[in-house]
Amino acid sequence: MSKVIEVLMQMASNAEMSNTKSLAEMLSNANLTKAQELAIQTKDMDALKVATYNLPEIRCYPILLPDDKSEEVSTLINRTVANF
């Protein structure tokens, strides 16, 4: 796994990382590039993107339709009609 991802995982899953000293220590031992380390320290997401080689591009991710006629609804309509 890439080093920057390991660092982001550590930061997100280890409560100790809210301690500035522990975070600084982890960062200095993480073997990140200078640009990545700086981007993380300054919480600069855009700079981290630029500094991270080969980052997959995500352009879009809606996965829902406003008008997805689901089974449940059509069954319900049929049942309502049948009751008239």
Binding site: I5, T52, L55, P56, C60, Y61
Partner: peptide, 28 residues
């Protein structure tokens, strides 16, 4: 996979050797 950012996609790729991103299906 359908992740919300490139870091998450990369993270997933570190967990399994055959991760296929579904992003390519989107088109404006």
């Amino acid at each position: 996979s359908l992740m919300a950012n490139g870091f998450a996609q990369k993270w997933l790729e570190g967990m399994n050797a055959d991760v296929r991103c579904l992003q390519g299906f989107y088109q404006e």
